[in-house]
Every structure is written in C-alpha cells, then in structure tokens.
C-alpha cells in the first residue's frame, strides 16, 4: 500500500508549502501544532479541513486571523466527523451533477476530548456510513483548552484539574480508552497510530489515510507541556519515550489487519530494548505523586497495564502467537 514515490524526505518536506502556517498562537512546545503541520504536509492535492472545538481551533483562527491555507470550517465540539460527512456529501453531489471535476480530500481534526468522549458518536456514525475522509485525532490526553480536565484519553494516574492527585485519590483511577482499536472494530479501511517524534512515519500514515477509499483514522500522540507539566523543549523527546516504553506503540490496521510499525517492531523483536515506563513518567509532573512512597505501587500498575496491552497488540500483529 505504500507508494515508493512518497519518500517524504526532509528536503522534499521542507519545500512543500506550509498549509498550517506559523503565526498561530499555540504554546511553546505544543505537540498538536506539530501534528497538524505534519499532516498538512502529507496532503496530496485540493483539501478541505474541519476542526472540532479545542486547542487547535482556538489557536489557529482568532478572527480576523487564520493559520489555514486550505478551506477550513469549525462548527462545534462533538461533530468534527459530521462536518466531514456533510462536506464529503456536498462534494459527491457536486461531482454527480458535473459541477466538480477534481478530487478533494477531507480531513477532520479533533483532540482527545472531541474524539474519545463527546465526539465519539458522530465519529462512529461517520465511520459506519463509510464517508471518504481522514480523521486525525491529536491526543494530548486531557481537555487542555479548558484547563487540563481529564478525558477518556487521560492515562491512569495522571493528575488533572478534575482528577487531581489528592490525599485520598491519586489522580485518574481509570485507564485510557483504546480508541484506535475501537475504530479498527468499525472495519474501516485504514487505522493507524503515529507520533510527532517520528515525522516520516506520521507523514506516510497520513498520506495512506488520504489514499484509502473510505474512512481513515489516525491517532497522533501529541504531548502538551502545559498539561503534562514538563519543559517545553522536551515535547519530541517525551513523544519518543512513549513509543520506546510501549506506552504508545506505533501500528497500522489495513482492512482491520494489524501491522506493527518499524519503531515498535524493533522493540518487539528485541524485547530487551523496551524501556521501563518509570523513565517516561518521571519526566512529567502530572505523575509526580506516583513517585511518593504512598503511591509507588501505581507505577507497577501502569507498567502491568502497558505490558498487557503490548502483548495483546503483538498477538494481533502475529508477532506473539494468537490464543
């Protein structure tokens, strides 16, 4: 499925015009802004973008300014996939009536709140109906725009403003929803996870999602220095560590068949290179309470959960024997 023409070399990418331009008002070290810039670098022609309410909508379009060089629409929080459905339907109608000759790609962007939680229904509906669009989830693991509230994408143990680490409750006590697996279960043509730390992999996956005929879902891991409480220079480092610890493994599911991506496959083949999650957690102050003796056992909980999900993934990818 990978076209050898999509080399996406650094030189090539540097020359490609910025469709998500600089000048937007994202924070220093913003992971989602990197994600959007990269995805827009992977576009292949005329494109219409839509955005759920959230950080990226807010930072990129304060009227009368815009960071978008493609037509772009925001309508509400829970309906990015419904926006994409309507745009795609309009394009189909225009094509059928001979009013549109070219192909136009449709990309929907939404954060974890707009995807795991409030936007899940619209996303599931659009996937079931089979609209031809790429849905990009930029996952910074909480409602950052409204001030770091927990979402269905917030990991176990994380302290947020609505799951604060207190004297009784040690941050979020639930695990992260396996959203990408839920999308694979919709039997759509293409689902992938990607990380802003591996830009080439992300670009190829974004392009594959656009090439796929039908709904495609790209789950991009995008750290947030404000919400995760780390130095703004560490965004890419943290994103990489999430892959190296198997906290956020990279994979694709093409027609629901799981394939491990190179960065995670190396770890699968050399399990001794898998880093302990402690290294990843200790870089972020949202987890700092876990390093107090009282909650120390929770780091083991996190590690066990990661190991369990990782092994499950390896089975799906036929690297470990399926049960």
């Amino acid at each position: 499925m990978v076209n050898p023409a999509w080399k996406f070399t650094a030189a090539e990418i540097a020359e490609k015009p910025e469709l998500f331009t600089s000048g937007h008002r994202a924070c220093a070290g913003c992971g989602p802004a990197i994600a959007l810039r990269l995805v827009m670098k992977a576009t292949r022609g005329p494109t219409i973008a839509t955005n759920a309410t959230g950080c990226m909508e807010v930072v990129s379009t304060i009227y009368p300014y815009t960071a978008w060089k493609v037509p772009w629409i925001h309508t509400a929080f829970e309906n990015a996939a419904a926006n994409a459905s309507g745009i795609e339907a309009a394009l189909n109608a225009m094509r059928r009536k001979g009013k549109l000759q070219t192909h136009v790609d449709v990309i929907a962007f939404a954060g974890d709140g707009g995807t795991f939680d409030i936007g899940l229904q619209a996303l599931s509906g659009a996937a079931e109906r089979g609209h031809d669009f790429l849905y990009v989830l930029y996952d910074n693991e909480a409602y950052m725009n409204t001030g770091i509230q927990r979402s269905g994408g917030t990991p176990y143990g994380a302290s947020t403003t609505t799951s604060p680490a207190g004297d009784l409750i040690p941050g979020k006590t639930q695990f992260k929803k396996p959203i990408a697996d839920i999308m694979v279960a919709h039997d759509i043509p293409y689902v992938a996870t990607a990380s802003i730390a591996y830009w080439q992999d992300l670009l190829i996956k974004a392009r594959k999602g656009l090439e796929a005929e039908g709904p495609a879902f790209l789950h991009v891991f995008a750290p947030c220095p404000r919400g995760w409480r780390y130095d703004t220079s560490k965004t890419v480092e943290l994103a990489r560590l999430a892959v190296e610890t198997c906290t956020f493994p990279l994979w694709e599911a093409v027609d629901s068949e799981y394939i491990l991506s190179p960065q995670s496959k190396i770890i699968a083949l050399k399990p001794e290179t898998k880093k302990p999650v402690r290294e990843y957690l200790k870089m972020q102050r949202r987890f700092s309470h876990l390093f107090k003796p009282r909650y120390g056992h929770m780091i083991d909980d996190v590690q066990r959960s990661i190991d369990k999900r990782w092994n499950k993934l390896l089975k799906k990818c036929n690297i470990l024997p399926r049960e």
């Binding site: 219409i48 839509t50 629409i73 309508t75 509400a76 829970e78 309906n79 996939a81 419904a82 926006n83 994409a84 459905s85 309507g86 745009i87 339907a89 309009a90 394009l91 109608a93 225009m94 229904q121 619209a122 509906g125 659009a126």
Partner: peptide, 15 residues
Amino acid sequence: HSALTACLAASATGV
C-alpha cells in the same frame, strides 16, 4: 445533531 451538522457543512461547501 449530526444531521444538522452535515447540512451545515454541506451548505458551507456551497450546495
């Protein structure tokens, strides 16, 4: 909610 959203987005696309 999605029905009206889809109409709105389609309408914004010019149809």
